[in-house]
Amino acid sequence: MSPVRICSRTACKASAVFTLTYVYRDSTAVLGPLAAYVEPHCYDLCAEHADRLTAPMGWELLRLPAEEASDQPTSDDLEALADAVREAARPVSPGTEPVGQGTEVGRRGHLRVLRSDQQS
């Protein structure tokens, strides 16, 4: 179980339920459901501070709908997991693999640029 994240507002000890992100290029503040993990330039907010949040002057505040909090996987989650397992277990057809040898045409540090030789 992951530790409970608290509100980023000074002196607030309430549990965070929303994450605030600023998109500077678009002058937009985005308030959405609590992010899966902590980001350096995002702010976790409790419900009270999220409700009172306003955007800076000239900015737009975009409020994304909050998802239902549930520790149990949904049927969509389980279905997606089953599909991923089926896909990973599927044998690879010989025709789907790349054909030909790559020819090195450049190098920078540990990176190499390869050109595929076309085979007809």
Rank of each mutant, 00 (worst) to 15 (best):
R86N: 11
S93T: 08
A80F: 13
R108A: 04
E104H: 01
R108S: 10
G95D: 03
E87T: 12
G106E: 09
R107S: 05
G95M: 07
R86M: 05
V105R: 07
E87L: 13
P94C: 10
A88V: 03
P98S: 06
A69E: 14
A89S: 11
V92M: 09
E67T: 14
A88C: 01
S75W: 00
V99T: 05
P91L: 03
A80D: 14
T103D: 06
E104Y: 02
L64F: 00
D77C: 15
E97P: 02
D77R: 13
P65D: 15
G106T: 08
A80P: 14
A82R: 03
R107Y: 03
E104D: 11
R108Y: 04
A89M: 12
P91G: 02
L81Q: 13
V99H: 00
D71A: 06
L81S: 07
E67S: 12
A80Y: 13
R108E: 07
T96D: 10
A80G: 13
E79K: 14
L78P: 06
T96C: 06
A80H: 12
G102Q: 04
E67P: 04
S70G: 14
V85T: 07
G106N: 09
T74P: 00
A80N: 14
E67I: 09
E68A: 12
A88M: 04
L78D: 10
D71C: 01
S93N: 08
A82V: 12
G102I: 02
